[in-house]
């Protein structure tokens, strides 16, 4: 049986998007009372909850303390019901520790950690439903949560994936597209300055295509940043009206 056609001749993808179009992104900030910051984000069918605690005293091993800046502690996990097949996901498996590390690196680049020496910032993200682009959804949700917590950042960190099918770069891959083979590139971007916080690709891609693929991913990131910006401003406005007077 022929595999699925990821991009039709008419330029439509499996779910009806065009090559450069993003999935629908919806988000809410401040979904938890207890946490310092929290956010819920849907990127298509990928649904993520992000929670931020801190900055606070370093708990546990004192050796983790950094005397010039804050420690960022990330934990990525997936709900048992997040994928098509129900699966128990123990903590600390290879995939999620790798993802945790990537998130940590991403936010170390964006958060102004030097303002909080000797303290710790916890970022917990949980995938409630996985439909491709888990990393980018996590980054986007965590950004909102960090902003909600009032932790200073250089800029938003927006992440998006891009794939490469039939010599055409596709933005924001869904699960079917990710598993359909081919390369997938994830970029986390500080959109205003255009600095890249993290770039990840685990399949082979010819050097000649890298530029176009990066370009597509970065454009997609900027698209995401617009949506996030709207969400933040909306939230800000609502809150300030409440407390304003």
């Amino acid at each position: 049986m022929a595999g699925i056609e990821l991009l039709s001749d008419q330029g439509y993808r499996l779910d009806g998007r065009k090559a450069t179009e993003l999935r629908k992104v919806q988000a809410r900030m401040g979904v938890f009372g207890q946490a310092d910051g929290s956010a819920y984000l849907e990127q298509g069918n990928t649904k993520v909850l992000a929670v931020v605690y801190g900055p606070h005293e370093v708990r546990g091993a004192r050796s983790k303390i950094l005397y010039d800046r804050a420690v960022i502690n990330c934990q990525y996990s997936m709900a048992t019901f997040s994928t098509a097949e129900r699966k128990r996901r123990p903590h600390g498996d290879r995939k999620s520790s790798e993802m945790s590390l990537h998130l940590k690196q991403t936010f170390e680049a964006a958060v102004l950690t030097q303002l909080y020496p000797r303290s710790q910032i916890d970022i917990y993200v949980k995938i409630l439903q996985a439909d491709g682009g888990n990393y980018s959804a996590c980054v986007n949700a965590a950004t909102l949560a960090v902003i909600d917590a009032g932790i200073p950042m250089r800029d938003y960190v927006c992440a998006c994936t891009a794939g490469f099918v039939d010599d055409t770069p596709l933005a924001d891959l869904c699960h079917a597209e990710e598993s359909g083979g081919g390369t997938s590139l994830a970029v986390a971007l500080l959109p205003r300055g255009g600095q890249i916080a993290l770039l990840q690709m685990d399949a082979r891609l010819h050097q000649d295509h890298l530029d176009t693929l990066m370009e597509a991913a970065m454009t997609a990131c900027k698209g995401v940043s617009k949506v996030l910006d709207e969400v933040v401003r909306q939230h800000l406005q609502e809150m300030s009206i409440l407390t304003g007077e």
Binding site: L14, D15, G16, R17, E21, R23, K24, G44, N45, A84, E85, Q129, D131, C174, A176
Partner: peptide
């Protein structure tokens, strides 16, 4: 411009899987 529509598919591979895919309708 985008209308989102999700539908549910059942496929058989070992067990019953619920596959949810997005389906955007355009004008």
């Amino acid at each position: 411009m985008l209308k989102s529509k999700t539908f549910v598919k059942k496929t058989r591979s070992g067990g019953i899987l619920k596959v949810v895919r997005e389906h955007y309708l355009r004008d």
